[in-house]
């Protein structure tokens, strides 16, 4: 674990991603301190306060209800992060369990579980999520569950292949030979070895969950009692921000999503580079092959 941390610190992409995520987390945690206004507060709306341009009073302008966009933006981070973490937790637990069982036991169980995974993998996520949320109530809880139970297939496949490669290792075989209980082996020998990969994968699952939440919210399936970045965009888009030229209502929430998702993607990419490093060298690369005096090649490749 210590090595992993060391390696991560040397990986520029990973560090940048981590910083981006931590900054968003801090913003969400200290929202009440950072936000100039309380979004839940009732205000008197005048015609002038609707889609007001950015000013000293409202650095990011106001929205269709005359509320401060900056405050909404700061609080909105809470929703995205909540959905991202909890939904991906569900996905990783389901996918991890299926992957571990499938990879460890193999045979018929593996076949059955992987076929099921394939079937779920093929069914398009977003339409199914839309249908599920539309048929139930669009509460934050439901959104988290729906995104969670639709996002596990990638994890399952990854964990399965890692489990298969790990279970052939000597000490696992030895534990098996001395008759250790399969669940014991799974928990004490295999799980710790699969974990790093699962963590790396989780970061990517989080980014997908956040994107899915924003898409659902944009399509009008957000929790009405909260205001996520996706919902801010939905309101702005459907309530005339385009025609009023109120770009400020459209820019901040979108940038927030990009920031957070990019943070997760970079961190995930960094993890991946650490876990399975590849040389990235190939036969067509120009090498400064010859270091001789008087050679043309040196001049040609500069």
């Amino acid at each position: 674990m210590r090595d992993f941390w060391q390696a991560l610190r040397r990986n520029r992409m990973g560090v940048i991603g981590l910083i981006m995520i931590v900054l968003t987390l801090l913003m969400a945690i200290f929202a009440p301190l950072l936000a100039p206004y309380n979004p839940k507060e009732r205000i008197r709306v005048t015609l002038d306060s609707i889609y007001a341009k950015p000013s000293l009073e409202h650095p990011f302008g106001t929205d269709d209800a005359g509320k401060d966009v900056l405050s909404n933006f700061i609080y909105g981070a809470r929703v995205s992060l909540t959905v991202g973490f909890f939904a991906s937790f569900i996905s990783v637990v389901i996918g991890g369990t299926i992957g571990l069982i499938s990879g460890f036991f193999g045979g018929k169980i593996d076949n059955l579980l992987m076929r099921f995974t394939d079937i779920v993998l093929v069914i398009p996520d977003l339409p199914l999520a839309v249908v599920l949320v539309a048929l139930t109530k669009p509460s934050l809880m439901n959104i988290i569950i729906v995104i969670g139970i639709l996002g596990w297939t990638g994890t399952a496949r990854l964990v399965r292949s890692q489990t298969i490669s790990v279970k052939e290792r000597k000490f696992v075989l030895r534990a098996k030979a001395i008759g250790a209980h399969p669940l014991y082996i799974l928990r004490n020998h295999i799980f710790p070895l699969v974990l790093p990969l699962m963590i790396a994968n989780t970061v990517l699952v989080i980014s997908l969950a956040i994107l899915n939440e924003s898409a659902l919210a944009f399509l009008g399936l957000g929790d009405p009692s909260t205001l996520s970045w996706g919902q801010m965009l939905n309101f702005a888009f459907t309530r005339g921000a385009m025609s009023s030229g109120a770009w400020w209502a459209l820019l901040a929430p979108g940038l927030g999503i990009v920031w957070l998702v990019l943070g997760c993607t970079l961190l995930g990419q960094g993890f991946q580079q650490i876990l399975n490093p590849r040389l990235e060298s190939h036969h067509l690369q120009k090498s400064e092959m010859i270091a001789l005096e008087g050679s043309h090649v040196q001049q040609a490749t500069g």
């Binding site: 994107l211 898409a215 990019l262």
Partner: peptide, 21 residues
């Protein structure tokens, strides 16, 4: 990676805002 991180609908909104205005 950046393009991948863009919410599709938001990119659409930005392009629409720019294209129509």
């Amino acid at each position: 990676l950046t393009v991948w991180s863009l919410p599709t609908f938001w990119l659409g909104i930005l392009l629409l805002f720019w294209g129509s205005n």
